[in-house]
Design a protein around this nucleic acid. Structure first.
Length: 295
DNA sequence: CCCAAGTCCTGGTTGC
DNA sequence: TGCAACCAGGACTTGG
């Protein structure tokens, strides 16, 4: 599932590939995935626009374009973003894609067919595409004038990048009766945590996913703040979690699935205390935790 | 048939 | 009692 570390992995790759490039043509635009924009409008407005940068907020990727347009992408549950050449046309489940051009000026000169760049993605004589592929169709593509405020405004601070303190976390937790895991999944509190990292963070903190969010002591909140950052940073360092569909823009898997301690491990022994991890449903999501050392 | 799980939406509950 | 904030659960999607 693309959560903060997976989206950040994608962002860093897009940042190497996209800024300065021009959008040539929208090739696919699945109406189902589009928000704040019609298919006709997308096909008409994107060509000729330059990608200015690649940003992230929580699980949203934000691409500011020239002329104050913003292309915003959410990968949903199974979304993948790939930078490909002509092999893109053999993919299934492509929901959105556009062809990219080198910048009109400043880029490498258009070479002859004999250029040693021949065959490299984006090199002279080849086509580069940004392809959004999504089996489950939970992903979304937005096009807005200015930043997509309707999506971003309700969100809390980015769980990894933004400055937020344990004291602010305590304030946010105060009085909440909902289970702690539901709090972690709520993007209005902190943005970026999904089901996998929620289970992992909770295991690391030794806190039960079922604890009422408002019941944590200040010591527990300090541990929670630390582990949120620590496990998300580990996810970024390992380039995401490829337990199911996740891959980076070059089709490579991440490594976080190798270090999972709780998610998906119900029935196995807790690596800390040996107790069998159990599975339950919290906030409508499958939840694995250690009933002995997570309290 | 149920499960996986992102976000959005609805309707019921809680507490001031 | 009124009302807003809060919270649970369903809808959506499709392959395993």
């Amino acid at each position: 599932m693309p959560e903060l570390p997976e989206v950040e992995t994608i962002r860093r790759q897009l940042l190497q590939a996209l800024p300065g490039r021009l959008i040539a043509e929208v090739e696919e635009a699945d109406l189902f995935m589009l928000r704040d924009v019609t298919e006709e409008e997308l096909r008409r407005r994107l060509p000729g626009k330059r990608v200015e940068s690649v940003q992230r907020r929580g699980k949203f990727l934000i691409l500011p374009l020239s002329d104050s347009l913003y292309l915003t992408i959410h990968l949903g549950m199974t979304g993948q973003l790939l930078i490909l050449g002509d092999e893109a046309q053999a993919l299934t489940h492509v929901r959105f894609s556009f062809r990219l051009l080198q910048p009109a000026a400043g880029g490498p000169p258009a070479g002859t067919g004999a250029s040693r760049m021949e065959g490299a993605p984006g090199g002279p004589g080849t086509t580069t595409r940004l392809v959004f592929r999504d089996v489950r169709k939970f992903g979304r593509v937005h096009l807005t004038e200015g930043a997509p405020a309707a999506r971003l405004a309700p969100m809390g601070p980015d769980a990894l990048e933004d400055e937020w303190t344990a004291a602010e976390l305590a304030e946010s937790l105060r009085g909440r009766r909902a289970p702690l895991k539901a709090f972690l999944l709520d993007q209005r509190r902190l943005a970026g945590i999904g089901n996998i990292y929620a289970d992992e963070i909770l295991w690391s903190t030794r806190l039960s996913p079922l604890r009422p969010a408002g019941s944590l002591s200040s010591e527990e909140i300090a541990v929670l703040a630390r582990e949120i950052r620590s496990r998300l940073a580990e996810g970024v360092r390992l380039r995401g979690c490829s337990i199911s569909d996740f891959m980076d823009t070059e089709g490579r898997a991440g490594g976080f699935q190798e270090v999972l301690q709780a998610y998906g491990r119900h029935g196995e022994a807790c690596s800390r205390c040996g107790t069998t991890l159990v599975r339950t449903i919290v906030a409508g999501r499958g939840t694995a935790y250690c009933p002995r050392c997570q309290r």
